[in-house]
């Protein structure tokens, strides 16, 4: 049998089209069946409604550590100082611009004295202040990228969560987080981190650390709410994020910029 070049191309093209059409059938069917709606927010809206954000105000923080205590109690975080979803750091900058950072017991018991370990007298301190730390719930989270089993992911309202059933405890994410926000829970053999009190914010409340802060140094809110405290504060204040050069796009904004805070 002889077949002309024209016919060969015609038949080939038809076959190719048919193949593509057939192979797409299961995906189309799956798309019809799959239920993609997600809604757990107490206010009736779907997760997509919210884009949670957070502010820490270094100018207001008094280093009392009530946030650390509240977080541990609210989230059953082990009381020992090496397990923390949030903590408070004390920055001490000397006259010759040397920077010292400490966080005794992660700030859980407050800060009692001028750090005894520091070999600099109090008179040589140029400035000193407190910096509250917690998970930045990055828009581009490196911890999610590295998880080999996909146990951690970003929700549609912008919080990075861990599935404790899927986490294999390899701790790669602890290494990947540039902010030290993750830690290992030996009891469960999984990694744990701040969820911005996911159980509170989905009931219309604020995270426990924000609730107990006596000086309003922590602000929680919805970046989608233009009239909310979060957006109005960001509009009025100069703020920065930690390690912006890493491109993680953190959603915790800090008021009170100081060179050397990381």
């Amino acid at each position: 049998m002889k077949i002309s070049r024209r016919d060969f191309i015609k038949i080939g093209a038809k076959g190719l089209l048919a193949g593509v059409a057939f192979s797409s059938v299961p995906f189309l069917l799956q798309g019809l069946v799959k239920n993609s709606s997600r809604a757990i927010a107490a206010d009736g809206g779907g997760l997509e409604r919210h884009n949670w954000g957070f502010i820490c105000d270094n100018e207001k923080c008094i280093g009392c550590g009530r946030c650390v205590v509240a977080c541990k109690k609210e989230n059953k975080v082990p009381w020992e100082p090496e397990f923390n979803r949030t903590w408070v750091e004390r920055y001490i900058i000397t006259e010759d611009e040397k920077i010292y950072v400490d966080s005794p017991n992660a700030g859980r018991d407050g800060f009692q004295d001028f750090p005894p370990k520091l070999d600099v007298p109090e008179s040589e301190v140029w400035k000193s202040f407190f910096v509250p730390k917690l998970c930045n719930q990055c828009h581009r989270p490196p911890c999610v990228t590295v998880c080999p089993v996909g146990a951690t992911y970003q929700t549609h309202d912008g919080v990075v969560l861990i599935d404790q059933d899927h986490c294999i405890g390899c701790r790669y994410c602890i290494q990947a987080c540039p902010y030290g926000a993750r830690f290992f829970l030996p009891e469960l053999g999984v990694v744990d981190k701040c969820t911005w009190c996911y159980h509170r914010i989905n009931r219309g409340l604020i995270p426990a650390c924000v609730e107990v802060c006596p000086v309003g140094a922590r602000i929680f809110g919805d970046l989608n709410d233009p009239a909310g405290t979060l957006k109005t504060t960001l509009a009025q204040k100069r703020f920065y994020v930690l390690k912006p050069e890493l491109g993680t796009e953190p959603k915790v904004s800090y008021i009170g910029f100081e060179k050397g805070v990381y």
């Binding site: 757990i40 109690k73 996909g150 992911y153 929700t155 599935d163 009931r203 426990a208």
Partner: peptide, 23 residues
Amino acid sequence: GFHKVDEAANEQFWASLPMQYAN
């Protein structure tokens, strides 16, 4: 089983944990 996280169920898990602090 263990192939992929059920995100909706996991979110439900975290969202339904009991609270300690009121207001």
